[in-house]
Amino acid sequence: MKDQQLHIAWGSLMALSLGSTLLSQPGIWALWPVAAGVGALVLAWLKARIVLSRYLGLAAAPSWQRGFEISLALFCLLLLGLYLLPHYPG
């Protein structure tokens, strides 16, 4: 991997981690618990995609990357459903 790509991936991970940190503030969870939970899950999903594609080198193997991304997306959708289930009125 080129150094520039590594730096971009690292910077992206830092920005996403900052977003996760901001979402974890007690005031955010008190005002918008569902939105904060969904946002935290989306940020974690984006960070996992960066780690898989850049640091593990799956960008060089598109078929493997696609398989991992589909598995990761299905897992995140399962987690999202389990998180939203108690918030569902009914």
Rank of each mutant, 00 (worst) to 15 (best):
F75R: 08
L23T: 07
L16T: 14
W29D: 00
V38D: 06
I28F: 05
G39K: 05
I28S: 00
L56V: 04
L77W: 12
C76P: 01
S71E: 01
S63H: 03
V38W: 03
G11F: 06
A36D: 01
S24Q: 11
G19M: 09
G11M: 07
I50D: 01
P33A: 09
K47V: 02
S12A: 08
Q4D: 14
H87Q: 09
Q5D: 14
A48Q: 10
V34Y: 00
S24E: 06
H87G: 02
E69Y: 12
A59G: 07
A48I: 05
W64K: 13
A61K: 14
T21W: 13
A40W: 08
L43C: 09
L31C: 06
W45P: 00
S20Q: 14
P26C: 05
L78Y: 10
L84T: 07
D3S: 05
I50W: 01
L22W: 10
P26Q: 08
A48W: 06
G57K: 12
R66G: 03
C76F: 15
L77C: 15
R54H: 13
G39Y: 04
L6Y: 13
L46M: 13
L84C: 06
A44F: 08
L72R: 03
L22Y: 08
I8M: 02
L46T: 00
L78W: 15
G37M: 02
D3C: 02
S24Y: 02
P89L: 14
A35E: 14
Q5K: 08
A30H: 05
A44E: 08
A30R: 07
T21S: 13
Q25I: 12
T21Q: 04
S71L: 14
L43N: 00
L79A: 15
L56F: 15
L43W: 09
L82F: 15
V42W: 09
L74P: 04
A44R: 05
A30G: 00
L80H: 09
P89H: 10
V38C: 13
I8Y: 08
A60N: 14
L16V: 10
G19H: 04
G39L: 10
C76I: 09
Q5F: 08
A35L: 15
F75N: 10
Y83A: 06
A9V: 12
S17K: 04
Y83R: 02
L22K: 10
A35F: 08
W64N: 03
L18K: 07
